[in-house]
Every structure is written in C-alpha cells, then in structure tokens.
Amino acid sequence: MIATNALQVRYGDTIAVHDLDLELAAGRIYGLLGRNGAGKTSLLSTLAGFRKPSAGTVTLDGRPVFETLESTSRICLIGDDGAVGDGTDRLRDILDMAATLRPGFDTGYAAHLMDRFALDRKKTLGALSRGQRSAFGVVAGLASRAALTMFDEAHLGMDAPTRQLFADELLADYGAHPRTFLLSTHLIEEQSPLFEQVLILHEGRLLWRGDVDDLRSRGIAVTGPASVVDDFVYGLTVLAERALGPTKQVTLYGDLDDEHRKLAARYGLELGPVALQDLFIHLTGGVP
C-alpha cells in the first residue's frame, strides 16, 4: 500500500534516511524499531507527507503522498509530541476539527475512546500530562480510521495499564476495521507481540525486516567453559561475548546447523534463547 523508492531524507549535510526501498502491505500491523537518531521520526514524517523527500519517492497505492490530498487524507501520523492541535485548544474542539478535516473520522468511536482513556473534553491540549497527551493522540489517531495510521512512540509517558488499554483498543479496532498500522517503539519486548512484522532502522538504513518470531529464533546464547566456547563459535556470527569467571556466554546470530547442535551437546555447551531486546541491542551495535 505505501511504498518508498530510493527515499532519502536530508537535513543540510546530515542524512537521516539513506536510499530506502520499502513496501508495506495493506491490513497489517508493523513495528518500527531503532535507536534514538536511527531515522524513525524522519521516515514516518516523510511517509505521512509532513516532509518532502529530499530524493526518491513515497507513494500510497501508486499515488505520490506529498501534497496529494487523495493520499494524505488516507494517512494519519501522530507524532511523539502528540501535537494534534494548538496547546490552547480544548480536546472537544480538536475532535470537532478533526471530524471536519478528516473524511473518515469516526466521532462516535472517538467519544468511546475518550471515555476509555478517561480524558476530560473540557481540558486544553496544553494542560494535559505527558501520558494524557499521548492517550489523546491515540484517540485522534485511531478515530481517524486512516488506511495508514502511524504512531511515533504512541505510549510515551503512558503508565502500564494505559499502555494495555492502548493495545486492547488497537487490536479491537484493527479486528473490526482492518487497516495498516506502523508503530515506532522502544518498548520492544512489550509491544512486539502486537506486530505482524518489525522493521529495524539503523543509521538511516533498513537493518532487518521480518517476523518477530523469526528474529527471536535467530539469536542463540552459547554458555560453557571459555576455551570450549571459543572453539565452538569459530567462524560463526558473534554478536556479543560475556565472561563470568571461567564461564563464557556468547550470543550468536543466525541458524545453527545440526552438526553444531550435536557438537554443543557433545561438549556439554548450553544453548539458550536470547531475549528480543538483547538481540536488538546487539544487532544495532551493542551497548556503547
């Protein structure tokens, strides 16, 4: 549905997104992962037409996005600042405005979400706490029912129960009105079950894309006596190493063939899974 071709986003001499070719299918929930400064916000802004591509193209169902009403009216991006109106605007006025501006906006559903998130319609946007503002962003984003709905760290400042509420409402509405979601997040372990696919952006490039379970199965932790472990991992992709006394743990990336598995069993090496978050940290350059 949305596609980029050799997309580049530049700020002066700084390149935020490098020649990105990306295509997202309709009706799926995608996760966008990446460290701070990886280019997530630049990418999302350009996909939404907030920013003109410095080079390359962004198209929605074949039509350009930037300055094309047929496209932008079907796209909704809620930024990480939750800015869906002026700080002095009351929430109910912002919702009325959204209903005027967005062809598919569902006022009744917005009202339902306002109640669920316990938001006071009479408050102004500027008077909300960080978590409430994020929640209001979720209300505006979900009620837009846009064919492509994107949230840049939708859960910023939300407490755990509110994040669960967000997941519940997202999944319920996704079930009732299937559409494409792209959610950026730093809460990898918590949010990843929501995604059908994740995209990992690193230094402006797409580092990895695929099934979350697939990614999970690519990490293997090998634990055992240091010298044995060193011999075992020779020639394999090592992401990280850690030693505790005579014991060493090495994180490997990629599938382990049967021969290696037998070898590990013979030498008494322990093979274990790696937490998604650790795998992500290792893939994106480790802990500084």
């Binding site: 929930i29 669960q164 519940d168 999944l171 319920a172 079930g175 079950p193 929501l194 059908e196």
Partner: peptide, 8 residues
Amino acid sequence: AAYYRINP
C-alpha cells in the same frame, strides 16, 4: 488476539 494482546 484480544485476550493475549497479540497480533491476530
């Protein structure tokens, strides 16, 4: 999906 909060 709703019960376990996972992707359908």
